[in-house]
Design a protein around this nucleic acid. Structure first.
Length: 255
DNA sequence: ATGCCTTATTTCATAAGA
């Protein structure tokens, strides 16, 4: 089973790249973030053999799940999901091939003194409670997506450049550890080039070319899934070329 | 010290991203 997650930064703009990548990588389940549309282009991916579930309502955010191994019991959002002020389209879950899979787009946080930062922490805390309930059932669970937090200093190109910024604060990293404390494992993917497991590079200033990136797209899985992992990689080829997303897909293979 | 790029939208300007 091949599981992948990719922040596409608009599925409408990225549709040619998405179709190309599905044909190339052939994931069984793909979690998408920042689809940025209320009308997911379902027909185009259904033509490639995928079932689709999408949760989006317009200009920002938006998540989706694509699966060719079943897509059942779809959840749009999770119980008691915080909003800003109303819940946004940042989470979608479904049962695929016997596993509970979530595609997540964690709030950015903007700056540490912005109300959006507290919203981010609240959202992560509520996510923990919701996922704890699913893990407690004993089912295999994987939460995948753009967490907007770099777990360690090794996950940013220069820690000194992030002092005082969001994505690296103790509180955000503690929120990730609280998720791991549920019994989840961080499936760290291998970069296809170099030593940095980055998944995001800003469009500006040649950041990708200089490998000035961050690892913020994560796959956290229960031991029942993590023990089946045969490989995991970041598809940086998808970050190259014409009209790429600013994120690369993370691909996890399971026995 | 700052912009650098890309997106969608009640578009020739703005908000947001991280």
């Amino acid at each position: 089973m091949r599981l992948a997650t990719w922040n596409v930064n608009s599925v409408s703009s990225r549709l040619p790249r998405l179709v190309e990548w599905l044909d190339l990588a052939k994931p069984d389940v793909l979690c998408l973030q920042e689809t940025k549309t209320a009308e997911f282009p379902a027909a185009e991916v259904e033509a490639l053999g995928y079932q689709v579930a999408a949760h989006g309502n317009g200009r920002w955010n938006g998540v989706a799940l694509l699966s060719r191994i079943g897509l059942d019991d779809v959840s749009l959002g999770f119980p008691d999901e915080p909003g800003y002020p109303d819940p946004e389209t940042r989470a979608i879950g479904a049962t695929c091939g016997g596993a509970r899979i979530w595609s997540l787009y964690v709030p950015n946080g903007r700056t540490v003194d912005d109300p959006h930062y507290q919203y981010k922490l609240s959202w992560l805390a509520a996510l923990k409670t919701a996922i704890a309930a699913e893990v407690a059932t004993g089912a295999p669970v994987a939460i995948c997506g753009d967490f907007n937090v770099a777990p360690t200093d090794a996950d940013v190109w220069d820690p000194s450049a992030f002092v005082g910024s969001t994505h690296v604060t103790d509180a955000e990293r503690a929120a990730l550890r609280a998720l791991l404390d549920l019994g989840l494992v961080d499936i760290i993917p291998k970069p296809m080039k170099g030593n940095n497991p980055f998944t995001y590079w800003d469009y500006r200033a040649g950041m990708f070319h200089k490998d000035m990136g961050m690892r913020i797209d994560l796959v956290y899985a229960t031991e029942s899934l993590a023990g089946r992992v045969t490989g995991a990689y970041i598809d940086r080829e998808a970050r190259k070329g014409k009209s790429p997303s600013d994120h690369a897909p993370v691909v996890v293979d399971l026995d």
